[in-house]
């Protein structure tokens, strides 16, 4: 398949995603919105087969095996679960997505050569930046969604929980992540990559734990935004436009939805999330998405 055709298919997928976001919040158009989002995902995935078709039989086997195993597990769980279990199933699926982002970044870290990004240790800083941001935001989304899963599933208490001295802990973690992340981008040492990702886990967990069960939907939208930005960072890492496009769309729309929900329900989650207590939760001041949260904060 030619590169132009793939680019056009990616464009079509992007348009379908935009339509899905536009249509799905309204009761009358929710179903067409769902159809658009499924179609967009299918187009994006099929186009990717044209972009990076596995070149060997064993690769094909892995691709088909992975999709078959994952698809069977996902479909079985989604069918069997009771309606009351749906909210925490959604959180679990979000956690898996976050973990997948971290794994992709780790794959590129292991063998940048195979992705056409140069030998280990000679990867350009802009790619390493994408790798670091993907790992940090992916880990935050994973840990946060896992916490949401535990709370919604009733495995931990429904009431908000905060560590004593949570604010300074989060600030310390944020600063550490920032420093180690910059050190990783400068030198590309794998140890620093794993350390940054590990330090991001408690950030996601602690921030999410400070949301009570009733406010969890808003928190999940924010975690989804986090995941979206991580996907966009993966797009920068791989130089893949549909990941950047979809990641940006998911990130911004999820934030937007969270803020609108907040206005409707009069829930103080924006102050909860961006207030003094969790100032260290967003170490990436240079993220465009974060600039938008800044605007959102002054809005209401």
């Amino acid at each position: 398949m030619s590169a132009t055709l793939i680019a056009l298919l990616y464009l079509a997928a992007g348009i379908l995603f935009i339509l899905a976001l536009r249509l799905s919040p309204q009761p009358r158009t929710a179903r067409p919105g769902l159809a658009c989002s499924i179609a967009g995902l299918v187009v994006a995935i099929l186009a990717t087969f044209g972009l990076a078709a596995p070149s060997t039989g064993s690769s094909w086997l892995l691709v088909i095996g992975g999709i078959a195993v994952g698809g069977t597990i996902g479909a079985t769980i989604a069918r069997r679960i009771r309606m009351s279990g749906v909210p925490h199933l959604i959180a679990a699926l979000q956690a898996l997505t976050g973990l997948a982002v971290v794994l992709v970044a780790a794959a590129v870290l292991q063998a940048p050569d195979a992705f056409g990004l140069g030998k280990t240790g000679a990867v350009s800083p802009d790619r390493l930046t994408g790798m670091a941001i993907a790992a940090v935001l992916g880990a935050i989304a994973f840990a946060g969604s896992a916490t949401a899963f535990l709370r919604l599933g009733g495995f931990i208490g429904a009431a908000p929980y905060r560590l004593p001295g949570q604010a300074p802990i989060l600030v310390t973690l944020g600063v550490l992540i920032l420093v180690l992340g910059i050190a990783f981008i400068a030198g590309g040492r794998p140890v620093l990559f794993w350390l940054t990702a590990l330090l991001a886990l408690p950030v996601g967990g602690l921030v999410t734990a400070s949301f009570g069960r009733d406010d969890m939907t808003a928190a999940q939208f924010v975690l989804n935004a986090c995941c979206g930005l991580a996907i966009a960072a993966t797009g920068f890492l791989l130089g893949n436009l549909i990941l950047i496009l979809a990641g940006g769309l998911i990130g911004a729309s999820s934030l937007s939805l969270a803020v609108r929900m907040d206005r409707e329900g009069n829930r103080p989650f924006v102050s909860l999330l961006f207030g003094g207590d969790t100032a260290g939760a967003s170490p990436k001041g240079d993220e465009p998405g974060q600039a938008e949260t800044g605007q959102a904060e002054t809005g209401p």
Binding site: G66, G71, A100
Partner: peptide
């Protein structure tokens, strides 16, 4: 990553 993403997709 592919397997986890497939679970998330189909589920």
């Amino acid at each position: 990553a592919l397997t986890l993403a497939s679970i998330a997709l189909f589920g």
